[in-house]
Amino acid sequence: MARETRELTCINCPLGCPLTVVLEDGEVISVTGNTCPRGESYGRKEVTNPTRIVTSSVPVDGSASERMVSVKTASDIPKDMIFDVVRALKDVRATAPVAIGDVVLADVCGTGVDIVATKGA
């Protein structure tokens, strides 16, 4: 049996607990070091299917106060798609008025996740 130990840092909140994940034949058998349950699920996920929230900002037209409006993926996307998402945002412009939560780009890169505004403009 192949036993593997991975040392990770939980990134679910800024406390950044140090996690130890033990895998056996690719199966997670234990997660330790977490302070709360989110740490355990993060540890499991990070070694099998890592994801991230991506944030950026895009130009906004017609706003009196802002040149740029900040945006994010409405939920996590696979980590290996970060650059695809950023590339997809290259030519996106928002048009004022924009409210927090407005969809700026739907279903980015076929992930099923929308890009939403995080600031009003």
């Binding site: 909140c13 929230i53 944030t55 950026s56 900040s70 927090i100 995080t118 600031k119 009003g120």
Partner: peptide, 25 residues
């Protein structure tokens, strides 16, 4: 917070992960 557009704000307060502008709002 207006220029901190990354996420990671407010997990303790709101139990969700906000960006800087969202937390400020």
């Amino acid at each position: 917070l207006n220029q901190c557009i990354h996420n990671g704000f407010g997990l303790h307060t709101f139990k969700e992960e906000l960006t800087g502008p969202e937390y400020a709002a």
